[in-house]
Computed example of a mutant assay.
Amino acid sequence: MKITIVTVGKIKEKYLTAGIQEYLKRLTPHCRLDIVELNEERMPDNPSPAEKAQAISREGERIQKSIRPGTHLIVLDVAGQMLSSEQLAAKFDTLALAGQSDLTFVIGGAFGLSPDVLAAAKERLSFSRMTFTHQMIRLLLVEQIYRAFKISRGEPYHW
């Protein structure tokens, strides 16, 4: 399985980078996972609604250019569907059985995702109704991808 995470913004915290790298290493026998980091739009300290919309639009254009044709696109969206780890594992299994082995997850910027990116998504996934930093959600996502593979294989999972 090939999994890509397209994300707006860079990881700034060393502890998050270390955690992400650990899960990427653990995922090596299970899948090929690539992370595509896109630049955030520069914004004033207190942006207007129009400036936010413009930033979302420009980030959305860059996100769409990073998405491969034919990939199963899943966007992370606070208003999306919440799944258990077991349900995510079952979703991976179902997609694989249907011949869909190319998945792309998208994590938007600070102000969210453009309507065009949301419309292109096959699914919207929410980790919680709570708000997390986009940097932190990347760590949570790679951990859940790893956990899904372990669940699918019936292997124990311990950190």
Rank of each mutant, 00 (worst) to 15 (best):
1 M>V: 13
2 K>T: 13
5 I>C: 09
5 I>G: 12
5 I>Y: 04
6 V>S: 03
7 T>D: 01
7 T>L: 02
8 V>Y: 01
10 K>L: 10
10 K>N: 13
12 K>T: 14
12 K>Y: 10
13 E>V: 07
15 Y>F: 15
17 T>R: 14
17 T>W: 02
19 G>C: 13
19 G>E: 09
21 Q>R: 14
24 L>M: 14
25 K>Y: 10
27 L>T: 11
28 T>H: 06
29 P>W: 07
29 P>K: 08
34 D>G: 13
35 I>L: 13
36 V>W: 01
36 V>C: 14
38 L>N: 09
41 E>T: 05
41 E>N: 02
43 M>L: 15
43 M>E: 06
43 M>A: 12
45 D>S: 15
45 D>W: 03
46 N>C: 10
46 N>I: 08
48 S>T: 15
49 P>F: 11
52 K>I: 15
52 K>Y: 01
53 A>W: 01
55 A>H: 04
57 S>N: 09
58 R>W: 00
59 E>A: 10
60 G>K: 01
62 R>I: 06
64 Q>C: 13
64 Q>Y: 00
65 K>T: 14
65 K>Q: 15
66 S>A: 15
73 L>Q: 05
73 L>V: 11
73 L>C: 11
74 I>N: 03
76 L>A: 12
77 D>L: 05
77 D>A: 10
79 A>V: 00
80 G>W: 04
80 G>D: 07
80 G>H: 08
81 Q>F: 02
82 M>H: 12
83 L>D: 02
83 L>F: 11
85 S>P: 02
85 S>E: 01
87 Q>F: 05
91 K>L: 14
92 F>C: 07
92 F>Y: 13
93 D>A: 14
94 T>M: 08
95 L>D: 05
96 A>W: 03
97 L>R: 15
97 L>I: 04
100 Q>L: 13
104 T>G: 01
105 F>G: 10
107 I>F: 03
109 G>W: 01
114 S>T: 00
115 P>Y: 00
116 D>T: 13
118 L>E: 07
119 A>C: 06
119 A>G: 08
120 A>D: 03
121 A>M: 03
121 A>G: 06
125 L>Q: 09
125 L>H: 10
126 S>E: 04
128 S>F: 06
129 R>F: 02
129 R>N: 12
130 M>A: 12
130 M>C: 07
131 T>P: 03
132 F>S: 11
132 F>E: 04
133 T>I: 07
137 I>K: 03
137 I>C: 08
139 L>H: 07
139 L>S: 10
139 L>I: 09
139 L>E: 06
140 L>I: 15
143 E>K: 08
144 Q>Y: 11
146 Y>P: 02
146 Y>I: 05
146 Y>W: 10
150 K>F: 03
150 K>H: 03
151 I>P: 00
153 R>D: 06
155 E>W: 05
156 P>K: 14
156 P>N: 10
156 P>Y: 04
158 H>I: 09
